[in-house]
Amino acid sequence: MSAAPSPALPDERLAAGAARLTARHAGRFSAETVQVLLTDSYRRLAETASVSTHLVVLAERLTAERLGALAHVQGVPGSGLPRVLFVCSHNAGRSQLAAALLEHRAAGRVTVSSAGTHPGPEIGPYIAQALSEAGTDQAGAFPKPLTDEVVRAADIVITMGCGDACPIVPGRRYLDWPVADPDGVPIEVVRQIRDDIDTRVTDLLAGLPST
């Protein structure tokens, strides 16, 4: 009996991304696994996206992150950096600030992810401005849904206002940062929130093991 065909991709333009990801993970994940995750990522992003123009590119990026997390969970060599996951409700404000600042300050020492329990359509403009002023790289940042692979791969999960929807996985180190919500506030307040998060990020990084 022949193997069942892979499910059709929801957008034919995803085929090129599926081929790239399959080649990158050759010997690690099958083409079918890559395609299933890519399809799921695309559909999740499409549920909340305000503009569909970049969905194909963003779905490939999200799938790449999910595959990296899955490799870490499975103990693939070379995937052993400490992993920190920031979670808030919409992944458009606090968790984006925290992830970008930790990525900037860690300089490759940490694998950083962020996600939302109910991801918004886009990152707030004042969030992007505050991060640009801090010298962080926001290229390619976008609100992402919380996925099982990324949660299970995290060594530290830091929650920021997602309440009962925050993920719980036994054995993880959990921190809750009571940071003010930057949604709808002036840029001056967003800068204060950014600086509060930056202080917490600096303290967190100081306590992580050296690599």
Results as ranks from 00 to 15, higher is better:
4 A>K: 12
4 A>C: 09
5 P>R: 12
7 P>C: 10
7 P>Q: 07
7 P>R: 11
12 E>L: 13
15 A>K: 13
15 A>E: 15
17 G>S: 15
17 G>W: 14
18 A>K: 10
20 R>D: 14
22 T>E: 10
25 H>C: 04
26 A>L: 14
31 A>T: 14
31 A>I: 11
31 A>G: 15
32 E>S: 10
32 E>N: 08
32 E>M: 05
33 T>H: 13
33 T>L: 12
35 Q>S: 13
35 Q>E: 11
39 T>H: 05
39 T>E: 05
39 T>W: 02
40 D>C: 01
40 D>R: 14
42 Y>V: 07
42 Y>H: 13
43 R>P: 11
43 R>C: 11
44 R>Q: 15
44 R>I: 01
48 T>D: 01
50 S>T: 06
51 V>I: 09
57 V>P: 01
58 L>M: 12
60 E>I: 00
60 E>F: 06
61 R>N: 11
63 T>G: 09
65 E>C: 02
65 E>W: 02
67 L>P: 12
68 G>W: 06
68 G>Q: 11
68 G>A: 15
69 A>I: 00
69 A>G: 09
71 A>P: 13
71 A>M: 06
72 H>D: 03
73 V>M: 03
77 P>W: 03
77 P>Y: 02
78 G>S: 01
78 G>C: 04
79 S>L: 00
84 V>A: 07
85 L>R: 00
88 C>A: 13
88 C>K: 12
89 S>D: 01
90 H>T: 04
92 A>V: 04
101 L>E: 01
103 E>H: 12
103 E>C: 02
104 H>D: 12
106 A>H: 09
107 A>H: 13
109 R>V: 02
110 V>Q: 09
112 V>K: 00
116 G>C: 02
117 T>L: 04
119 P>I: 02
119 P>K: 04
119 P>M: 04
121 P>K: 11
121 P>G: 07
123 I>W: 00
124 G>E: 11
125 P>G: 12
126 Y>T: 07
128 A>G: 12
129 Q>D: 14
130 A>W: 07
131 L>T: 10
134 A>W: 05
140 G>R: 11
141 A>N: 15
141 A>W: 05
145 P>M: 07
149 E>H: 04
151 V>L: 04
152 R>P: 06
156 I>R: 13
156 I>C: 05
161 G>N: 05
161 G>I: 06
161 G>A: 09
161 G>V: 05
162 C>Q: 10
163 G>A: 10
164 D>E: 15
165 A>E: 13
165 A>K: 14
165 A>T: 14
167 P>Y: 01
169 V>G: 00
174 Y>I: 01
177 W>T: 03
178 P>C: 04
178 P>S: 03
181 D>T: 05
182 P>N: 08
183 D>T: 09
186 P>E: 13
186 P>H: 06
188 E>P: 03
191 R>Q: 09
192 Q>A: 14
192 Q>R: 14
192 Q>E: 15
193 I>N: 06
196 D>F: 04
196 D>N: 05
198 D>K: 03
198 D>G: 04
199 T>I: 11
200 R>G: 01
201 V>P: 00
201 V>C: 01
202 T>A: 15
202 T>Y: 06
203 D>S: 14
203 D>R: 14
204 L>F: 06
206 A>I: 02
207 G>T: 12
207 G>R: 14
207 G>N: 13
209 P>A: 08
211 T>N: 11
211 T>E: 00
211 T>V: 09
